[in-house]
Design a protein around this nucleic acid. Structure first.
Lengths: 159, 159
DNA sequence: AGCGTTTAGTTTAAAGATGAACTAATTTGG
DNA sequence: CCAAATTAGTTCATCTTTAAACTAAACGCT
């Protein structure tokens, strides 16, 4: 699935569409292309994007409950159970009982998990920096601002 | 999964991170939030996002091969087989043999499929327009330009 | 004509994702 | 103090997705 296939790929931005749709479709396509390429690069570390995101999140702060982690990752708790099972099988994370609440698992990185997460994090930083390099600082700031505005609007729409 | 849960959700944009990472993380989060909300809305039409995207693409032009459709949707052909199976079971699309090439299925919308695709398309336009409304026209144009620049860079990186 | 390659589509195994139903532990109110 | 409600996590059915192996048809070339 490597090798540029922006072949005939059809005119998704035909002028017929309103500006808002064209703008957002470009976000969708770019996001998907970015994810696909990141997937390939993470394969060198034997990690999927979902696994990487989980580890990266734990690298910032571990020792949190599955609920908290699921909220941060924007995934369902059912999904997270399977994700953590696979990471635990590989010895990258551990579930520890919370002494103050018998229902809770506290999720922590193992040493191996922390090492791998650090590698993956470096890979991602390099990748994103390169990908975004055509934009100057002002544009990157604008992009961030605009996305925050849209996200706020989405939360407002989800009354 | 409705109801705003931008609860404690943790400081994903901590100043520690470089600007490029913060900017791109905001794209990821916004994309995911957008998808989640669109999923909810499409449920009123009994469509998943993947199904809607397939139908929307066929609405622009049908009578194309599965390969072509897969390339347009940025999904694998194996994925598309299952997707089309489910849409065909519901009578929304049809596979027609290509008289000029015995290997090819030409995918066409049925009348029901066209009607549903049209409804979903209207829903999506309204949704995206509302979501993007905090941005003025110039910003929407900038967003589109920036995404195209990043996408071009990604294709360059995928030598 | 015929052999080898390419191309179209299906199938499969594994991971990911959701929402709903379920179990177990904790909290809350009376 | 205890029944009811809430919360944490797992399990399940369903759908999405990928990569790889496979079948069948078409093409290319000598």
């Amino acid at each position: 699935m490597s090798g540029s296939q922006q072949t005939d790929v059809f005119p998704s931005d035909r002028p017929r569409q309103p500006l808002s749709i064209r703008a957002w479709l470009s976000v969708i396509r770019t996001y998907q292309t970015c994810t696909r390429l990141l997937t390939e690069r993470l394969r060198t570390l034997d990690l999927t994007v979902a696994q990487h995101e989980t580890l990266a999140n734990l690298l910032i702060e571990d020792g949190v409950s599955q609920q908290t982690l699921a909220a941060r990752l924007l995934v369902t708790k059912g999904n997270l159970t399977g994700l953590l099972n696979r990471l635990a099988e590989r010895g990258l994370i551990e579930r520890r009982p919370d002494p103050s609440d018998g229902r809770v698992n506290l999720i922590v990185l193992t040493a191996a998990g922390r090492a791998l997460a650090t590698e993956a994090d470096a890979l991602q930083r390099t990748y994103v920096a390169e990908m975004v390099s055509p934009l100057d600082e002002a544009q990157q700031t604008d992009l961030h601002t605009m996305m925050k505005a849209i996200e706020a609007q989405l939360h407002a729409m989800d009354q």
